[in-house]
Design a protein around this nucleic acid. Structure first.
Length: 272
DNA sequence: TATAGTGTTATCGG
DNA sequence: ACCGATAACACTAT
């Protein structure tokens, strides 16, 4: 399930193999995935255009679209959110697939149409599809990205301090708040707090300047590690988020709780 | 069969 | 109005 690193991998697949191919068909008939659009609305808006660039902020992606032939006006940006279970698969003209992530494979074979919720067909016979079993992903035109906070991988120290400055929420809840910082999901948050040795339930107003700087270092390091490793499931503490799990640093039991409405695992000794 | 889950958002109460 | 907590969403896996 996608957090910032998985979404970045999907974005980079789109940028590498989907740009510049003319869209000749669009399947936007899934009324869940394509809310708030009516079936056909996205199709009409995109036919005859190409994707010209692929962007990302936090877990949200959007693609710029070209003018149609004979016009100078670009098309509407196409927003894509992977939700809990989405992934992007791009097919070449010969059917060869480039998969934007293998975190939800379930033995999927190339060409498998199960869970296909949205797709573009290109004039070369290839396609770009959103595969999303749980249907919590979204595809929409003109996505609102202004409401997102700074991308977690690019956030500056002063932006980070500002994100933690107000209110009294548990620090983990704030890390998960996409309007404060964009891109951190449940596993990344647990890894970051574990690395910084900060208890997830501590209020943001109790954090010292030193806590905050350790936290920002952990944000950067965890994101770098997850992008390099191929996803958040490769983060070092993730395998120990289970009953009987022990902290890989001090061997103390990992304990489970709920913070910010999400399942939370922490080291019982280092994150009391 | 019942429950949890790598995300977002509407809604409710303080 | 702001902030935080919770339920709901849709579906699969355990």
């Amino acid at each position: 399930m996608p957090e910032l690193p998985e979404v970045e991998s999907a974005r980079s697949v789109i940028a590498r193999v989907a740009l510049g191919r003319v869209i000749v068909d669009v399947d936007d008939t899934d009324t869940y995935e394509c809310r708030p659009h009516r079936p056909g609305e996205i199709r009409t808006a995109l036919l005859g255009r190409t994707l010209t660039d692929a962007h990302r902020r936090g877990k949200s992606m959007w693609c710029d679209t070209s003018p149609v032939n004979g016009s100078a006006v670009a098309g509407p940006p196409l927003g894509i959110h992977l939700g809990m279970s989405g992934k992007i698969v791009v097919a070449a003209s010969d059917g060869t697939e480039t998969d934007g992530g293998d975190y939800w494979d379930r033995g999927r074979q190339p060409g498998d149409r199960r869970y296909l919720r949205f797709s573009l067909t290109f004039d070369d016979g290839g396609s770009m599809a959103l595969i999303d079993p749980r249907r919590l992903g979204r595809v929409r035109l003109d996505p609102l990205i202004d409401r997102l906070g700074p991308d977690a991988g690019l956030i500056t120290p002063s932006q980070f301090r500002a994100a933690l400055a107000r209110g009294s929420a548990p620090v983990k809840a704030r890390l998960l708040d996409q309007e404060s910082i964009a891109g951190i999901g449940n596993l990344l948050a647990d890894q970051i707090l574990w690395q910084a040795r900060i208890s997830p339930g501590r209020s943001v107003q109790d954090l010292s300047a030193d806590d905050i700087s350790r936290l920002l270092r952990a944000v950067r390091q965890a994101i770098r590690a997850a992008v390099a490793g191929g996803g958040v499931h490769t983060l070092s503490v993730v395998p120990f988020r289970k009953p009987g799990g022990r902290c890989p640093r001090d061997n103390a039991p990992m304990v489970r709780s709920t913070v910010g409405g999400r399942t939370t695992w922490r080291c019982s000794r280092e994150q009391p």
